[in-house]
């Protein structure tokens, strides 16, 4: 089974539109949306949810006010400044958005007045789309720990692929280089980096290439909207080459991409110039994906 993960470093480079198009070109395949912070793939894939799974991860501290003796020990031991003290009401409480779930306050409360319930962080879904099954998720507002959720989505999508006998999983990865990105690329067969011809796009791509090199994952690069700054597009491809990251082809700036998005349709289903470019990029990606 091959797993292609599409990432970008910088957000807004067109990663999701390209992912959706790749899926359409290869249907039926398993699709995974690992951009759990800003999941958008469902807007073009129109999934029908088959199964929902609550996402519970870690714990959070909750102070039982009526048992609290206001000694302030919890506040002293917490390294995340997550314990608040209201002078007026003389109440200690935990700021759930600051709580790391380390349990130190729980262990050190002299009167055991701190509970430590499991934390509900969101839900993941197995859905059916016109192009095959899709695994996606939604984090609760300010829900944390998207790295673990990403791992869950990846393992569910691989399970689904082996169950149905599909040999490709196409994954829309998260932006950035932190915890969710690391969780989405480790062990993948191939990574496609979609970038844009801007100084930020260049900078972020280099950081992403540092990451794929760190984890020894094979990567390709595609410059989207390349004609916005042809010189920069060329520079980006050259710098990718110094990392041993090969070109997968460019995609031109095309308002038809936005139009397709507004209509809730994958770009390759529209007659628009960028659709041809995306098809050409796929043929390069496919060659690398099926090699070795």
């Amino acid at each position: 089974m091959k797993e292609l993960v599409i990432i970008s470093g910088k957000g807004g480079t067109g990663k999701t539109s390209i992912t959706a198009s790749f899926v359409v070109l290869n249907a039926p395949v398993v699709t995974a949306d690992c951009d759990v912070d800003a999941a958008n793939l469902h807007l073009v894939m129109k999934p029908e949810i088959l199964r929902k799974e609550e996402f519970i991860s870690g714990n959070e501290a909750v102070i039982r006010t009526h048992d609290c003796v206001r000694c302030g020990r919890c506040r002293a031991v917490c390294r995340y400044d997550a314990i608040r003290y209201d002078q007026e009401s003389r109440v200690y409480s935990v700021n759930p958005y600051g709580c790391e779930g380390c349990g130190v306050c729980v262990d050190h409360c002299p009167v055991s007045a701190i509970d430590f319930p499991a934390r509900h962080c969101g839900a993941s879904f197995l859905s059916e789309t016109p192009y095959g099954p899709m695994v996606h998720a939604k984090l609760d507002a300010a829900g944390e720990n998207s790295g673990k959720l990403v791992s869950l989505i990846r393992s569910r999508s691989k399970e689904e692929a082996s169950k149905r006998g599909y040999d490709i999983v196409i994954t829309d990865g998260p932006p950035g280089i932190g915890c969710p990105v690391i969780a989405s690329v480790t062990g993948a067969s191939l990574v496609l980096i979609v970038t844009e011809p801007t100084v930020s796009g260049m900078h972020d791509m280099i950081r992403v290439m540092d990451l794929t090199r760190h984890f020894k994952i094979k990567a390709l690069v595609s410059v989207n909207k390349w004609d916005l700054n042809p010189d920069m597009a060329k520079k980006i491809e050259e710098s990718a080459e110094t990392y041993g990251v090969e070109k997968a082809g460019r995609i031109r700036y095309d308002k038809g991409v936005t139009t397709a998005m507004v209509e809730g349709r994958p770009v390759v289903l529209s007659e628009t110039p960028a659709a041809d470019d995306i098809r050409a990029v796929w043929s390069v990606v496919e060659k690398h994906l099926k090699a070795d």
């Binding site: 790295g147 690391i182 969780a183």
Partner: peptide, 17 residues
């Protein structure tokens, strides 16, 4: 029956999480 041998090292990458 002695058909399985102990591994010399880990056989998969770190899952990281």
């Amino acid at each position: 029956r002695g058909e399985l041998k102990a591994a010399q090292g880990p056989d998969v990458e770190s899952h990281w999480v």
